[in-house]
């Protein structure tokens, strides 16, 4: 089992929802982001290329950060997720330098003035210190919402399919540009996307083998016939005034959709 993500560049709209969802999920200090959007904008032979790359820790199979960490604070789990034990981190920032994806952030002790500098911490910040503390002077990064994955697995849920076991950024993406799942399982949602859509990894030449894949393509070119589950208005919550035919199809449709 190795958790991975497929990011569809045709879909990302740069809404920054994933960044915000991550901040909410992890009570991140003001200047820390785990998820980032890198805007790639060029023009070649008169044709502009405007692409947004959602970027986060790549959870590399052969992770340089694990190799360079002198204390073992950074380590890799069996499921491929690279985690940081803040209690062991001494803040040497070697990993920050060595990460080829520039996805590690050092929490400076003097650069966290709280959300509103000069004012008392907000209630949410105080709750965060209790529920999801971040240690100043240590390094931090995306952990694929490992708590949610562990919670989900313990409760019989499937990460990437069941919301409560899926990273917050994936859940919140309006464009559905992010897909999460097991890249070791050839039949998983992510593996199928990787196989079908000519997926690529960032900086593949470095041999780090990231768990994050990107796919790209064009918008359009599809058939406009609506599948039955769309015709019933199935995407709308069940508590509402749904017509009887839709009600009957809700269960089947949900399955079909998945």
């Amino acid at each position: 089992m190795r958790w991975g993500m497929v990011i569809d560049l045709t879909k990302c709209t740069r809404c920054h929802g994933c960044v915000a969802a991550c901040r909410v999920e992890h009570f991140l200090p003001l200047w820390v982001t785990w998820v980032k959007l890198a805007a790639y904008e060029t023009e070649e032979r008169g044709a502009a290329d405007i692409t947004t790359f959602p970027v986060r820790c790549n959870q590399c199979a052969d992770a340089p950060c694990v190799d360079v960490c002198p204390t073992g604070a950074t380590s890799q789990r069996k499921d491929g997720i690279v985690t940081i034990d803040a209690n062991k981190c001494i803040g040497c920032r070697y990993c920050v330098i060595a990460c080829p994806y520039q996805n590690r952030t050092f929490i400076f002790s003097w650069r966290d003035p709280g959300y509103f500098p000069g004012y008392p911490k907000t209630r949410y910040e105080k709750k965060g210190e209790e529920l999801y503390p971040h240690q100043k002077g240590t390094t931090t990064k995306c952990n694929f919402c490992v708590e949610k994955i562990d919670y989900g697995l313990a409760n019989g849920l499937t990460p990437g399919i069941d919301r409560d076991a899926t990273p917050a950024c994936v859940n919140t993406c309006q464009a559905r540009a992010l897909t999460f799942g097991d890249i070791d399982d050839p039949n998983s949602n992510v593996s199928r996307l990787i196989a079908r859509k000519n997926a690529f990894q960032l900086q593949r030449v470095l041999g780090t083998d990231p768990s994050i894949y990107y796919i790209d393509g064009e918008v359009g070119g599809k058939d406009n016939k609506a599948p039955e589950h769309a015709m019933t208005g199935i995407h709308i919550q069940q508590k509402s005034t749904v017509d009887p035919r839709s009600k009957r199809l809700i269960e089947e449709g949900r399955k079909e959709e998945e």
Binding site: R14, T33, K36, A38, V55
Partner: peptide
């Protein structure tokens, strides 16, 4: 530095 600030531009640290 690259941790926090983003501008929606191609001009920052990643590209």
């Amino acid at each position: 530095m690259q941790g926090g600030r983003q501008w929606i531009t191609p001009h920052e640290w990643m590209t």
